[in-house]
Amino acid sequence: MNANAKRTIDTKRQRQGAESPAGAAPDLVRLEVVRVRLAVVWLSAASVIFGTLILQSLLGHYQDRADEVWKWLLPAITPTLGLVISVIGSSALLPSFSGAVVRKSFYRIALLLSIFYLVFIFLNIVIQPFISATIDDQIKSFHTSNLWLAPLQGLVASALGVLFVSKHSTQADSEDDEAKK
């Protein structure tokens, strides 16, 4: 094994070490890492979506009906985004990592659900020039999109609720329990 290959493997191990707790199974990932990654996804997507809608509103795209569009968008994003931000914020005040882990499979499901959901919302806005000719049609289209966005939002909220709200026994707690026995 040459020096370069060894260095590559070492770097990979270091990266895995940052994501997975020491001694944890390789299909586990730290809860904090999961939360930060999901927060990045949500903040990035929300910035793009809000930015688009702010620009549209400022340029008068929705004429005097911008409030109806915001009424459609805000309940679709802000509850989850608020949860993500507040949990990340409260974790930031803790002196140490919790040591909680998440199965990668579930993390991937939560990540994909979030991405699908946010992409659907964004597509619903940017596809309007091709499907709606009037402001009235656009607002109707936004309301219609709730038919598929609402169930998807339910799934996303369930997944993120587990990761951001539910209390888990940490690996450290498990080790303590073992010691007591």
């Binding site: 549209q56 008068g60 795209h61 940017v126 020039p129 709606s132 000719a133």
Partner: peptide, 16 residues
């Protein structure tokens, strides 16, 4: 609605 894609037309229709 737009039937053909032109970046200028699209951006005008999306934002203005």
């Amino acid at each position: 609605p737009l039937r053909t894609f032109s970046l200028g037309d699209y951006l005008r229709a999306l934002f203005t």
